[in-house]
């Protein structure tokens, strides 16, 4: 599988800092191209939100560069990946928590990471950043670890009510806030010409599924530049609608081998 990939990150209309961090890595291997996308939304005062999200993406990137090749060539498969990620995120969480304790501050970050490996994707998720899978339908792959999502599941809140609820930013799970963390894992088949998006809440707050589907048509995207233009367009739409938070998105479009036109390299 070849991949078209791009990203866009904007500070938003009100914030003085951008606390979103992201990573995008791709390796040519004996098993074809493998791509890792990581999206993190930091929180905390005095520049610590930026630090928390940076730490999460850099640790995941380091894992891809240094630890993943051993998993890949050990032939142990996805079970080892899940186990490795669980321990990695637990370690990262604990270091963030200890840093916060040492400096008497609270810092944290969401994390949504997806590895596109062979014919499958593997996603690990903490918080309310999201992964979407867009083809004929807009599928939200991840489920938010948020209070409003919990109340929707309980039947106490409709999705429409949740969109405008003042408690919509309350997270039930987050990296670094306590000394332990729970995470969700998702896997799925990689479908060529599908658009996979990883984004922070500043991006998804203002998006409408119909518009995302209309703009993100994977079969019409043949280069990183074309994907970049679409992502910038979506971010501009969020800005026009008054989004105050930082706005970040990564896009990945799998293509059958040798179909991509250029490289973001």
């Amino acid at each position: 599988m070849d991949y078209i990939q791009s990203f866009c990150s904007d500070i938003g209309s009100k914030r003085k800092t951008n606390q979103d961090s992201l990573a995008l890595l791709k390796a040519e291997t004996a098993y074809g191209d493998i791509l890792l996308a990581v999206m993190c939304d930091g929180m905390g005062g005095h520049s610590e939100g930026e630090l928390a999200s940076k730490f999460c993406v850099t640790e995941m990137a380091d894992w891809f560069r240094n630890a993943f090749p051993d998993i890949l060539y050990a032939g142990v498969g996805p079970a080892a990946l899940k186990n490795d990620w669980k321990h990695l995120l637990e370690d990262v969480n604990l270091l963030l928590f200890r840093y916060g304790e040492k400096y008497h501050s609270q810092l944290g970050s969401t994390m949504t990471a997806c590895l596109f490996w062979g014919s499958q994707y593997f996603c690990v998720h903490v918080g309310d950043s999201r992964m979407y899978e867009i083809s004929d339908e807009v599928l939200q792959v991840t489920r938010d670890h948020s209070w409003v999502e919990q109340e929707i599941a309980k039947g106490n809140l409709t999705r429409e009510e949740a969109e405008h609820d003042r408690r919509r930013n309350i997270l039930l799970e987050c990296m670094g806030i306590t000394d332990s963390v729970s995470m969700d894992f998702y896997t799925g088949e990689i479908i060529p010409d599908t658009v996979y998006l990883l984004c922070t809440d500043g991006f998804w707050h203002c998006q409408k599924p119909g518009e995302m589907k209309q703009l993100c048509r994977g079969e019409t995207i043949h280069s990183n530049k074309e994907l970049q233009d679409i992502l910038e367009n979506l971010v501009d739409m969020a800005l026009d609608r008054g989004e105050k938070d930082n706005i970040s998105v990564i896009g990945v479009v799998p293509k059958p081998d040798k179909e991509t036109a250029d490289g973001l390299q």
């Binding site: 800092t17 992201l22 390796a27 040519e28 850099t58 390299q265």
Partner: peptide, 16 residues
């Protein structure tokens, strides 16, 4: 054991 990084992008906003 081929593992050639052809893309390595970090977009971060902290120097700490």
């Amino acid at each position: 054991r081929k593992f050639d990084l052809v893309l390595d992008i970090l977009c971060v906003h902290s120097d700490k």
